[in-house]
Design a protein around this nucleic acid. Structure first.
Length: 522
RNA sequence: CGCGGAGUGGAGCAGUCUGGUAGCUCGUCGGGCUCAUAACCCGAAGGUCAGGAGGUUCAAAUCCCCUCUCCGCAACCA
């Protein structure tokens, strides 16, 4: 059996505005999943939706729909989005799946039987119009922080999870292992929540009923913590009659998410797993936010960028490329239409696309499209390019292992930049005029073809449309030549391949014109 | 003193952990080339690194202190 790799996105809350932020996390995981698959891992890639809760119930009511009916539509939308983005997930879990709901009840029961869940009550300030509970410290001037209206002291019965019991183990986990990355998030968690001391966690609600019923107390529904977080194991069949996938894939290799939910995944989730006596995930990674201009993307701010518009207009790979390069390790990044257009032009059009175009064109013109065997070398000029070709594979994989996706891609673009320079150094068009230089020209063309082959192979985890186009243009029929680890091998067996000029990989975008169009469309 | 992050040429960023006179991409200007998608290659101008005529040091963007500004987090927005 091959090595396994289990990667997850969070399960998204169907708020009705799927935007580039959701796309970021999901495309990021997709790239990692593809990367591991290409390396021969048995990959399980999970994504899904978190569909219970008061907000959904309310919004469904506003739309005169049953909650399930309401979320069904939103789930259809997001599935279409993932299809649009070529997301290669293994399973899409919904918290409304019967298997999930059943398993959640079993988990809740198990924790209760063990004594890690107990019944009690909590006091809070209740805002009737908002139907929300607030703690003393959350109140603004004694009023509801959301709407500013009066609140009244109310007592609500609830089941509690003994989170406090796991405090020491959690501190140890976060501070003494690399469970949580980036490291800066560890400080945040430890200083804000662990050091001050954990309090037990309310894990049921009676104020709404759109959720999983507590098995032994149907007035209560299981609150989000246990319902949503446990998707990572219920998706694999945990607490079902068939736990085969669970046995194969758990623990997760990485839970990927944006920074605002790191807390739940690095404190509450491990505690639940500890209580269930299950192995912990190997890694929780909290990436930054894709900001719009300087602001967080949100519907209320009206700055949501529609992924469908971008993909339809610029192609999937342009969008995937931008997303994957937009965020440095652990930090925030920005989306603007202008930055997007410029980045695509600079990297994909001018550098990568143009290199492929000119290389194929020269191979056709000088060698009738048949990739020649190298003959005459010029070590001083050739070696730096060959070193770059050979080195790229190791650099890219190193960055991927460290979740520095943007740098991995930079590495590939840098390779193509290097090849563009090589063309100027070797001036093939001059070599072509002198029959005595034919041998030298063969080597130059061969090296260039190798470069674009390597770039194409290395791009396979990130871009889904472009690599096959590059291989087709190179006339590659041999699977070996597109295998991921073949990227590190030079020379490969390209000699004799019949190149074929295809459509331009990425058409040039006119900045002014596109900005105008986009402002109309969005 | 709530916690965390950030403040570097016109824009966006790297460099700060392991101190030694600042680097990348885009833009601008000049040159070269013509295989290529007005693309490509080379070169230049432009910053003294938020502020403190602060501390440590032979030497600080880089370590310490203070101030200012911006952003995020504080029970469910990737």
């Amino acid at each position: 059996m091959s090595k396994k790799y289990y990667i997850t996105t969070p399960i998204y809350y169907p708020s009705g505005n799927w935007h580039l932020g959701h796309c970021y996390t999901t495309v990021l995981c997709d790239a990692l999943a593809r990367y591991k698959r290409l390396q021969g891992y048995d990959v399980y890639y999970l994504t899904g939706t978190d569909e219970h809760g008061q907000k959904i119930q309310e919004r469904a009511r506003q739309n005169n729909m049953a909650p399930k009916q309401f979320v069904d539509g939103l789930v259809d939308d997001i599935k279409k989005l993932w299809e649009l983005l070529d997301i290669s997930y293994t399973k899409f879990i919904r918290t409304t799946d019967v298997e999930h709901e059943t398993a959640v009840q079993k988990i809740f029961q198990k924790l209760y039987d063990k004594g890690d869940i107990y019944k009690s009550s909590y006091e809070g300030w209740y805002c009737t119009p908002c139907e929300s509970f607030w703690t003393q410290t959350q109140l603004k001037d004694g009023k509801c922080p959301d709407c500013g209206r009066e609140v009244k002291l109310t007592k609500e019965e609830s089941y509690f999870f003994r989170l406090s019991k796991y405090q020491d183990r959690l501190i140890d986990l976060l501070t003494n292992t690399d469970f949580l990355e980036p490291r800066s998030r560890v400080n945040e968690m430890v200083n804000n929540f662990l050091k001050p001391g954990l309090t037990d966690l309310s894990v049921s609600r009676t104020s709404f009923d759109w959720g999983v019923k507590v098995p032994f107390d149907p007035d209560h529904v299981v609150y989000v913590w246990i319902d949503a977080l446990s998707n990572y194991i219920t998706a694999l069949g945990y607490a079902s009659e068939n736990e085969k996938d669970f046995e194969t894939y758990w623990p997760a290799d990485v839970h990927m998410m944006a920074k605002e939910i790191v807390r739940f995944h690095s404190i509450i989730w491990p505690a639940i797993l500890m209580a269930l006596d299950l192995p912990l995930p190997k890694k929780v990674f909290g990436h930054g936010w894709l900001l719009f201009g300087g602001d967080k993307m949100s519907k209320s701010k009206g700055n949501v960028v529609d992924p469908f518009i971008l993909v339809n207009r610029y192609g999937l790979d342009a969008v995937r490329y931008y997303l994957l390069t937009a965020l440095p390790y652990g930090s925030d990044g920005t989306y603007t239409n202008e930055a997007f257009i410029k980045k695509i032009n600079a990297d994909l059009v001018n550098t990568l696309g143009n290199l492929v175009s000119r290389t194929i064109a020269m191979t056709e013109q000088y060698f009738d499209g048949v990739i020649p065997a190298p003959e005459v070398e010029d070590k001083e000029i050739d070696q730096p390019l060959i070193d770059a070709i050979k080195g790229a594979y190791g650099n890219v994989t190193d960055y991927l292992e460290k979740f520095e996706i943007n740098k991995a891609l930079e590495e590939i673009i840098a390779l193509t930049e290097r090849a563009n320079k090589y063309i100027d150094q070797t001036t093939p068009w001059i070599l072509a005029k002198n029959p005595e230089q034919k041998g030298r020209l063969k080597t130059v063309i061969y090296n260039l073809c190798e470069t674009i082959r390597t770039a194409g192979v290395l791009l396979r985890p990130f871009l889904t449309k472009t690599p096959p186009k590059i291989f087709a243009q190179l006339g590659i029929n041999d699977e070996e030549l597109i295998a991921f680890d073949s990227a590190g091998k030079f020379p490969a067996k390209l000699v004799g391949c019949k190149v074929q000029k295809g459509e331009i990989l990425f058409p040039r975008l006119k900045l002014e014109q596109e900005l105008e169009e986009l402002s109309k469309l969005c």
